Computed example of a mutant assay.
Amino acid sequence: MATVTLKGNAIHTIGDLPAVGSQAPEFQLTKNDLSATSLADYKGQKVILNIFPSVDTGTCAQSVREFNKEATSLSNTVVLCISKDLPFAQARFCGAEGIDKVEMLSDFRNGNFGEAYQVTFIDGPLEALHSRSIVVLDEKGEVIHTEQVAETVDEPDYASALKALRDA
């Protein structure tokens, strides 16, 4: 179990992020067109998993905007923005914001991503949503960087994630 805070109050996830050097767990998520996708669909590419509670909060929205901006300069890399938001809300946000360089994916159907990556909150006001985290994978699906943001209202360390990606 990992402990983070929400405005200074402790909340917990079901476990810890996958370890650096480990093979990334498989998952199945829902795209905005309601089709399914899995980690296997991104084989051979570097992957940034931008994980967050809801795109309808300021910090989550900013992380999507920031990675969308950075994605234009990343070669052989896909940025997956993952939450339990419904695909309709994700599509609405992307349309309103002009977000078109990242993929929005939803874990609303069965929560298998949250379980596989151990980011599901088990208590507190965000219970059942995902902890703000970044996981970076190389082309072979190996975890090369992780960050579980200690204070949920804070943004992730974009520079560290992008450095790990570029150094891979």
Results as ranks from 00 to 15, higher is better:
M1P: 08
M1E: 10
A2M: 05
T3Q: 12
T3D: 07
V4P: 01
L6M: 13
N9R: 15
N9S: 15
A10I: 05
H12T: 12
H12E: 12
T13I: 04
I14H: 01
P18A: 09
V20L: 02
S22I: 00
Q23A: 12
F27P: 02
F27Q: 05
F27L: 04
Q28Y: 08
Q28K: 15
Q28V: 15
K31D: 07
K31Y: 06
K31Q: 14
N32I: 15
A36L: 13
A36M: 09
A36N: 10
A40W: 00
D41P: 00
Y42D: 00
Y42Q: 00
Y42V: 00
K43G: 00
K43N: 03
G44S: 05
Q45K: 15
K46N: 13
V47N: 02
L49C: 03
L49F: 09
P53Y: 08
P53H: 11
G58P: 06
C60H: 02
C60A: 11
A61S: 13
V64H: 00
E66K: 09
E66V: 11
N68C: 09
E70Y: 11
A71Y: 02
S73V: 08
L74N: 06
S75R: 13
N76S: 11
V78T: 14
V79K: 03
C81E: 09
C81P: 02
S83L: 06
L86F: 15
P87N: 12
F88Y: 14
A89E: 09
A91T: 11
R92E: 10
R92N: 10
R92Y: 03
R92M: 05
F93Y: 14
C94D: 13
G95R: 12
A96G: 06
A96Q: 14
E97P: 01
D100W: 04
K101S: 14
V102H: 08
